Simulated assay, not measured.
Amino acid sequence: MTIAIGDKLPTATFKEKTADGPVELTTDQLFAGKRVVLFAVPGAFTPTCSLNHLPGYLENRDAILAKGVDDIAVVAVNDWHVMGAWAQSSGGMGKIHFLADWDGSFAKALGLDIDLSAGGLGIRSKRYSMLVENGVVRTLNIEESPGQATVSGAAAMIEQL
């Protein structure tokens, strides 16, 4: 079953690369008592993710935070090394959280996993964005096609805020 507006996020633990190495972050640490924009991509360094989806959130970071958002995070079914390299190469390190859902367990728990094996990617996350308040989903925007980043993009999120 797919997560819906009004649902509490499932408990999960992510890994994130920092200057001191990998750290584990739980959903409680990331979302409890906070208003957070979370968006997911099928994979770091993939074309739509790197050229369209992520840049929109990085370019509009200040505008999003100015709308009363405490934090922004991107999650992908990649390991923390890949997510850390993507954070570095995109200029996003330290600006938003780059969360590794290394085994896809978070995507599966949300009901937002997708089999992209035909394209050589395996099991990944659907592309989506959500506003999470104190661990509860307040908005949810799921892309129909993994190659699009319109309803889940930064501009759409800013309108919802």
Rank of each mutant, 00 (worst) to 15 (best):
W86N: 03
R61K: 14
A76N: 02
S89W: 11
H53D: 05
G33C: 11
G104F: 11
D71Q: 09
L65N: 02
K17M: 15
F106E: 00
D71S: 13
F39D: 07
G104N: 10
F39N: 03
A66P: 03
M93K: 14
P42R: 11
Q29H: 01
E16M: 09
A100M: 09
H97T: 03
A107E: 02
D20F: 05
D28N: 10
F31Y: 14
I64V: 12
A66W: 04
I64G: 01
E59S: 15
S89D: 15
Y57G: 02
I64S: 05
V36P: 09
S89P: 08
D28S: 12
K34W: 02
A107R: 04
V75R: 01
D71R: 02
R61P: 02
D79N: 14
L30I: 15
G84I: 10
W86L: 09
G21D: 09
G84A: 11
G33M: 11
T46W: 09
V75D: 02
K108T: 15
C49W: 00
L25M: 10
V77D: 00
K34E: 07
E16A: 10
T26A: 06
R61N: 14
F31L: 10
D62N: 07
P55I: 12
L25F: 05
E16D: 07
W102N: 13
V74S: 05
K95T: 10
S105K: 12
V36D: 08
F45Q: 07
V77S: 01
W80Q: 12
V41E: 06
P55H: 11
E16T: 06
L54T: 12
K108C: 06
G104Q: 12
A40C: 06
P42T: 09
P22Y: 08
A100G: 14
N60P: 03
T48G: 12
V69C: 00
G92W: 10
D103P: 09
H81E: 13
F39Q: 00
G56H: 15
F98K: 04
K67D: 03
D101W: 09
G94Y: 00
A87W: 07
G92I: 09
M83W: 06
C49Y: 00
L99S: 09
H53Y: 07
A73C: 11
D20Y: 04
A19E: 15
M93D: 14
S105P: 06
K34T: 01
D101Y: 12
G104E: 11
E59Q: 14
A19R: 14
G84E: 06
T27K: 02
D62C: 09
Y57M: 02
F98V: 05
W80E: 15
G84F: 13
L58I: 11
K67Y: 01
P47I: 07
L65K: 12
V82C: 13
F45N: 06
G84N: 08
F31Q: 04
F45P: 09
R61F: 10
L99K: 06
I64H: 00
H97I: 04
L30W: 11
L99C: 10
S90E: 00
F106L: 01
